[in-house]
Every structure is written in C-alpha cells, then in structure tokens.
Design a protein around this nucleic acid. Structure first.
Length: 880
RNA sequence: GGGAGCUUAGCUCAGUUGGUUCAGAGCAUCUGCCUUACAAGCAGAGGGUCACAGGUUCGAAUCCUGUAGCUCCCA
C-alpha cells in the first residue's frame, strides 16, 4: 500500500464524516445504557461560525466522543436560536434594501419574510460545525421557534402568569431607540465615554436675578424637568424652601424638593429631576408625586410633549439646546466629564431609560433554589470561581423584563378586551371562554374578533432558558421517554458572559418545571483573543476565517491547536503557531504509522530481550499516563488531558519506545513485538480520538484490517491496566544514562555510528540493576557493556547519580578542560552537601519534620557524599 | 462607587492539605545534526529573588497583613 509521506487532512476528513453519518453513529435513542447528554448553546440564526464557536464546540465534541467511547449512550443535541432583536434587524435591513418599509407590511407578511430569511441563513453555522467534526445528533436538530418549542414557551408563560409570577406593569425600562424595543438589564453594556457636564442656571420664580445652577450631562432632557432637588441639610439652598423654579426655554414652573438622595459634592449640589428619563429621577417622582413628561418619541426624537425641537434626534438636540441655552444666558459653563453610558448589546444604540408598560417575571422566588443548587455543588462550575459571580447576581436579582416590541419571536399570549382589561390564554377562543366563565353577562356578547392579542413578543432568553427541557419536548409532555432518559443533561459548555442571561435562568426553569437540575457541570470557556489580547471581532477584522483554517491545516490540527492553550475559564490568545503545533502533531502520528506499516514481520525470528523489556516499560508508562489523563478528564482539565496524551504519544511512544524496538534498517521485526506495537498504537489512537477524530480514524483503519462498519469512534477506550512504577523509575535512571552517553559522544565528537564500549564501576559490593542494559546498548550503540571495580589510567568517565560510567579512551582529551569541569562540579556538590548537613544538624528540623522528609535529606547526604568521593578520585586520576 | 479574581521562564499557563514527582510543562530561543518514519524532524542546552515589603514556621510560590499593577462583574 502506498502511504503518503505527509498527512493530507482534506482527503481524509470528508470521507470519515460521511461514513459516520451514514452509519448513524451520531444518532442516539434511549436504551439500557447510561446516557450522556449535552445540549448545544444554540447559536444565533444570524451568525456565522467564529473562533469562539470553534473552541466551544471542540470542547463539546471532545466530551461527547469521550463519553461515547466509555460506552455511554451519548447524545449531543444541536440547534439554533431565533435571536429576536438581531434577526428582526437583519430582516428589516434586507427589506429596506429591497425598498420595502417594515411599517408597510402586516405582521403576517413580515413574518413570512423572516421565515424565508431563516430558511436561507439559519443553518449556516450548523453546517460549518460538521467541518469541525462535531458529532451532533443531527436528527434531533431544534430551533427555538419550532412548533413544539414555541408552544412550550407559551405554556410556560401562561403557567407562570397563573402562578402570579408574571405581571404587567409600568416601569422604567431600558429602551433601545434603534430596535424600538425594551431590553433587559443584562442586555445593556456600559461604556466609558468622554462627555460634558453642562452647568445650567434656572431662575427662581418671582425673582429677577436669583438663580439655581444645576449640572447635567443631558441638557436635552431639561424640557422634561418637573422638579429641582437639593439636600435638606445643604446650607446653600435653604432659601429655596417653598419656592418654585422656572425651567429655561419652556418656562414651566416646577417645585423644589428636598431629599437626602442628592449628593452634595456632585456638581452644584442641585439636581434637575426628569422622571420620564432617568431611573433615579423616576423614583424621586414616585416619592414626591411629580409630573412625568415624556419628551422623547420611541425612536429617540423629541416628542410633542417637549414643545421644542419636535421630531429632531436627541443627540442633535443636545447640540442645539446648548446653543439656545447659551444665547438665553442660562449656560454657565461646560466641563469635560468622563462617564459611563449604557448601550444596547444588539444595536449599540445609546439606551434611553423610558417609562412604559411591559411584562415582568418575578425573580426572587425562582432565584432561591437556583442559588442553593450551585452553592451546595449539586451543579458544579468549572472553574469554581464563577460561583462568586453567580451568587452575587442571584442575591441581587431584579425582576426580568420579558416583553420586546418586536414581531419575530413568541407572541405574548395575552388578549385585550375592548375595555382594556386582558386575559392570558393560548388562543382567542380559549380567552373568550375564560372571559365568559368569569363574568356574569357583561361580556357574553363578545366575539373572538373583539379581542386583540398583545403585539409584543417575548425576550429570546425566555425561550432559551427552557432549552434543555424543550428540545426533548419535556414541557408539554413531562413524562415522555426522551426527557425521562436524557434529563438532567450532563455538561453545559458556555461562555461566562451569559452566566446570567442563560445559565442561571436554565437552573431556575429546570427547578420550576422538573424539580431537577438542567445539567450537572458547567464548563466556562474563555474568550478567543488575538495576540495583542484584543477580543476577536468582525469589526476589528482580527479574526481568521475558521473554515479557511480547517482547509489549510485540517480540522484535527485546529481542534488540537485551540485547546492547547485553553485551560477552562482562561482566555485564549490565538496564534497560528498553535494550529501549526496541532498540524505537526498530526504529521508526527502519521509518520509513526508509516514507520510501523513499513516493517516486514517475521514469525521465524525470536523476540530480542531489548524488545521484551521495552514492551514491559511502555505498557506501564502507558497505563500511568492513561490514569492521569482520565483523572484530568474528570476534573474537566481538558487541555491538560490533551497535553498528557500529546507527550505520551510523542515523547514516550515515538521518541523512546519506537526507537527501542525499531529493527535495523531493512531487517524484519519479530511478530510478537509487532503485535504489541500495533496494540499500543491502536490504544493510543483511541486515547487521542476525542481530540483528533479524523486522523485517528484514518490511522486506526490503516493499522489493521477492519470490517466495513468498524469505527474507532464507537470503540471503547482502553481501561487503565496494571503498571509497575519501580520499572518506570528504573528506566528513568537508564534514560539519564542514555542522555549522558549522548552528551559524552557529542562532547568528544564521537558519531553515533561508531560503536563504543561502556564499563560501569560498581560502588563497593552493590548488585547492579541490569534491566535496561540492552536498551542502553541499543540506543547508544554500545558494543560491549561490563561491570568493573577499577579503571585504567587512560579511561574517560562521567557520573550519573553516584555511579561512574567508564568509556575507554577514544581520541585525545583536553586534561585542563576536564579538570575544570570536574572541579566546578565538585565545588557545587560540596556546597550542596553543606546545606544538607546544616539542615540535618538542626534538631528542630529533625524532631518536627515528618520522617519521610528527614529520610529524603539523609539520602541526599549519602548521594552527595558518594558523588564527592568519585569526583575526587576522577581528579586524582587525571592529575596522575 | 461596591464586589470578585489575578501577578510563577521571552510567551501561554500548571503547581491539591506548607516539606525531593517544588521551582515545572508546552511554545519560543540557542547549539549540533538532511542519522533511510518524520527538517511540519532528531539530539542537546540555556532561561525564573514565584509582583513588592513585612509576619507566622524548623521550613513559604503555597498561610497572614500591607503596598503596587492588571482583569472581570455590578451600579
């Protein structure tokens, strides 16, 4: 068989992905096995694959493939999220390009466009994930607006309403003037901006020249002022008691109120109060029963109520009004002032606090058990430090504004009667029944068409929080086979930035609807950043195109590269070098396979001693590493598990083991050894499979003849076998000897191809351990190995531990150079011994430290003493 | 303004209950090598007062206190 000298991923990857799909290996149905389940954090239908998805889904795939290879019934449910605001914005934008105004369409017509858009773009990310090797159960692909999931959301709304947890209320909300909708507190991002503090003076009513100066960052809101507030103890303003103030430009008379809320240090100590446009002012307004004048239209332009600048944008008005105030003699001064301004996470428009009627979900009761479940480790966070953040949010949780003034999404199932009252129901008909059953005769003549359904939809997260349940239809059919089997799911892999948006709320929903946790572990991934530490983003243009990377390096290389430097919860500084490292590793494995497959096997030759001991050593080494790797998996230290597997494969298997058992050039290998090598190789591929699925499947198939339906991905990972740590320990020493001989050769310019003789000098009457002598001989090209008590004048030697290794003179030696080296080492060792002696002569140390530690020091003492003797003798020897 | 966390090699990070698996790994760097699996490689080497200052202890990267710097979250 021709095997390419370099691994070519593009040829291999599509082939195996198709194979896995055709075999149905990704699909899961409930059975007798233990389930393992992950639900994907559903990507937006608006999105395309970015590096963050690559990392996140690589981790999920590793966990799923590993669970599958542990014999569990693994199910990874994929799907997408309808993303109300983002999608509606995209569709509106697209329509605008086509010259269609959203306002000119009916709701039904608009939704028609939205569904078309979703059909075209909604599956892009999921298809891209296939290139990465994602082993999702594609037959279970879900969308948050599929009928079953849609109805689940509506059911939950109705249920929570009936439980009194959902209410409709007038509240100050975060208004996104671009998307024309309210957004939740969590969707507001605060940014530091350089703004100005405007000092504006207001005339006291009934005076000609008595002024009160206030400081504001938002002069355009002056038109909505309905009070001036000062601290009751502020000496400067006592004269204002009982007075009224004239609002500049509009000449409205407003009261002065006294409240301790005011910070006397800030600005002038006098605060203008605009209840319609600031949350704190709103609260003051409630307290003092102030007039509320809403001076803005929903799109951020001035309303009729403002009287001036009607229809002009708030930021334009800020400029204009400053000029007008100045002209009218009201502007005292302006100062630069850095402050934080809230922006919409979705549209980046500056958030406008706005009074409006919205739907809210009470959070306090739901938060209580959800906090407890994380506090008592029923749900584990990896890394655990995120518990702090979670606790903080849960303890300070506020009611969740769940309505959005959009069309794309789950329409709020509330129906309004002509008199303005409403009922919550699944349909107009049901609503009508409820109305009729409640009221005597008053509404008996109502017809369905008299009812008007709420125009708004629900926050997207109000569907996402049900995701782990609704993908199995567990809201509508709580007893169905799937939900009973797969729920609670096992692991959730997500970003810390949505810990409140999503993770916390899933815990709440899980507890409310199943009295169960939604998942057992939450693994928080970091943010993928560029080399300068900037978050990768489209606008910065600093992100590589993931699919290009896969084409260039192969999916396995990308997976391995991304994971290498990504401990849980830590940000990943992306660098192409990481992916190159992944590619190099793939190639290394490929070449090892080429080596092994290149041998001719003979059952006629006996197995050399060196091979026997090498196989024993690698078997132990492998099992120790395996134990390590498995424990790293259970601690969710995936990058460490990968690193352990990497070193096992590269260092232990390739660099050591294969070199130990490798037959001489063009010589056959004995069949026992060959069988052992192929076995090890197979197991190694199984260990590596979750990280690099394609390459391992390819090599696994080349290593042995397989049946048509055989696949490494449904094989079982090896169990940890017995191991001999003393054997590993003894080889560690032999390895040091080998390295010392290599150094010796290099030092003395003796090429590897020239054989040398090696004599080991026995200390006193010790019985030498000869286990690895054949290995040393093979790897160092030793023609003769013996044990001696003395050495002859011409010999050269080196020391490992406290044993001297002698190599009969080959060529000339530089006596002075040797002496200097030996003297240096002698000095160092003497210093070392002094330190140890000092420690051992300290009675408090000997009495207080555990016996182990003291013994270790004694051992050091012995070794150093022995080494000094050898060194001294070597020096004497040279001087002779 | 309130809270949480971080600071260990040039870079990215490990380092459980204080004690020879405590100063580690990978990458990068440097030096030899195109040695018939692999130059996308092989064999070696160098590199850290564990942010700073105190304290506890026989013993501190690890525990305590303070200082400085960075990051994140909340308002």
């Amino acid at each position: 068989m021709e095997i390419a000298p370099k691994y070519n991923p593009s040829k291999v990857e599509d082939k195996w992905y198709d194979f896995w799909m055709h075999q149905g290996f990704f699909h899961s149905e409930p059975d007798d096995r233990e389930p393992y389940c992950i639900v994907i954090p559903p990507p937006n239908v608006t999105g395309v694959l970015h590096m963050g998805h690559m990392l996140n889904n690589t981790i999920q795939d590793i966990l799923v493939r590993r669970a599958r290879m542990m014999g569990k019934n693994a199910c990874w449910v994929p799907g997408t999220d309808h993303a109300s605001i983002a999608t509606e914005a995209k569709v509106v934008g697209k329509l605008r390009e086509e010259g269609i105004d959203k306002e000119s369409l009916t709701r039904e017509a608009f939704l028609e466009h939205a569904w078309q858009w979703k059909a075209k773009h909604g599956g892009i990310i999921l298809d891209q994930l296939k290139k990465l090797g994602a082993s999702c159960d594609w037959e279970r692909t879900c969308f948050t607006m599929d009928q079953a999931l849609y109805d689940s959301v509506i059911d939950v709304f109705i249920d929570l309403y009936n439980k009194g947890l959902i209410y409709r209320g007038v509240r100050m909300v975060n208004w996104d003037p671009k998307a024309l909708t309210a957004v939740s507190d969590e969707e507001v991002v605060y940014k530091e901006v350089n703004s100005k503090l405007y000092y504006v003076r207001y005339r006291v009513e009934g005076t000609d020249d008595d002024w009160v100066t206030i400081a504001t960052t938002r002069p355009e809101t002056i038109l909505g002022d309905t009070a001036i507030c000062v601290h009751p103890d502020d000496e400067r303003y006592q004269r204002l008691r009982g007075k009224r103030i004239i609002v500049p430009l509009v000449n409205r008379s407003i009261p002065v109120i006294f409240d301790e809320y005011v910070d006397r240090e800030f600005g002038t100590g006098a605060l203008k109060v605009t209840p319609a446009h600031d949350i704190n002012d709103y609260n003051l307004g409630l307290k003092y029963n102030l007039e509320v004048i809403d001076t803005f239209n929903p799109n951020g332009t001035m309303s009729e109520a403002a009287q001036l600048f009607v229809g002009e944008d708030r930021f334009v008005v800020r400029r204009k009004i400053t000029g007008d105030l100045n002209k009218a003699g009201h502007l005292v001064k302006m100062e630069d002032y850095p402050n934080k301004v809230g922006y919409s996470e979705r549209t980046d428009a500056a958030i406008e606090p706005r009074i409006s009627v919205q739907w809210f979900l009470k959070m306090k009761e739901l938060a209580k058990p959800a906090l407890e479940l994380v506090e008592n480790d029923t749900i584990l966070f990896h890394p655990a430090k995120y518990k702090n953040m979670y606790r903080h949010w849960m303890e300070n949780v506020t009611d969740w504004c769940i309505s959005r003034q959009l069309w794309w999404g789950h329409r709020i199932p509330a129906f309004y009667l002509p008199d303005g009252s409403f009922v919550v129901a699944r349909s107009k008909e049901e609503a009508l029944n409820i109305i009729k059953s409640k009221s005597e005769n008053k509404n008996s003549t109502l017809k369905p068409e008299d009812l008007r359904q709420d125009e708004d939809v629900l926050d997207t997260w109000f569907s996402s929080w049900l995701w782990p349940i609704s993908v199995f239809d567990g809201i509508r059919h709580p007893g169905n086979r799937d939900i009973q089997y797969y729920y609670p799911t096992d692991d959730l892999i997500t970003a810390p930035e949505i810990i409140f948006f999503w993770v916390a709320r899933m815990v709440m929903a899980g507890w409310e609807y199943r009295q169960e946790i939604p998942f057992k572990n939450v693994y928080f991934t970091g943010i993928v950043r560029d080399k300068q530490g900037r978050k990768m983003s489209k606008s910065l243009g600093n992100s590589p195109e993931p699919l290009d990377l896969i084409r260039q390096y192969g999916a396995d290389a990308v997976r391995v590269g991304m994971l290498f430097c990504s401990p849980a919860g830590n940000d990943l500084l992306y660098d192409d070098a990481l992916i190159e490292q992944g590619r190099n590793f793939c190639n290394k494995m490929w070449n090892a396979m080429r080596l092994v497959k290149g041998w001719t096997v003979s059952s006629d030759i006996p197995q050399p001693e060196v091979n026997k001991i090498s196989i024993q050593w690698f078997d132990s080494t492998f099992n120790v590493a395996l134990q390590n790797i498995y424990s790293q998996y259970s601690d969710y230290r995936l990058s460490e598990a990968l690193m352990s597997a990497y070193r096992l494969a590269w260092d232990d298997f390739c660099s050591w083991f294969l070199e130990m058992i490798k037959p001489a050039y063009q010589q056959p290998i004995d069949s026992n050894t060959y069988e052992a090598v192929v076995n090890f190789f197979e197991k190694l591929m199984q260990v590596l499979h979750p990280f690099m699925p394609f390459l391992t499947e390819e090599i696994w198939h080349i290593l042995r003849e397989r049946k048509e339906q055989d696949s490494i991905m449904v094989s079982l990972q090896p169990a940890v076998g017995p191991f001999d740590t003393s054997l590993i320990e003894r080889f560690r020493y032999a390895g040091e000897v080998i390295m010392a001989i290599r150094n010796f050769r290099k030092d003395k310019n003796i090429p590897q191809k020239d054989p040398v003789r090696l004599f080991i000098r026995k200390n006193n009457n010790e019985v030498p351990d000869t286990t690895f002598d054949p290995v040393v001989c093979k790897l160092c090209n030793i023609s003769e190995l013996g044990y001696v008590l003395e050495k002859s004048p011409d010999d050269q030697s080196f020391i490992v531990g406290s044993t001297e290794f002698i190599i009969p003179r080959m060529g000339v030696i530089n006596v002075e150079e040797e002496l200097e080296k030996l003297q240096d080492e002698l000095n160092y060792t003497r210093g070392f011994l002094d330190m140890v002696n000092l420690k051992l002569s300290n009675e408090r140390f000997v009495n207080n430290a555990p016996a182990q530690v003291v013994d270790a020091e004694r051992k050091k003492q012995d070794d150093a003493t022995g080494r000094i003797l050898v060194l001294e003798e070597q020096i004497r020897h040279l001087l002779r």
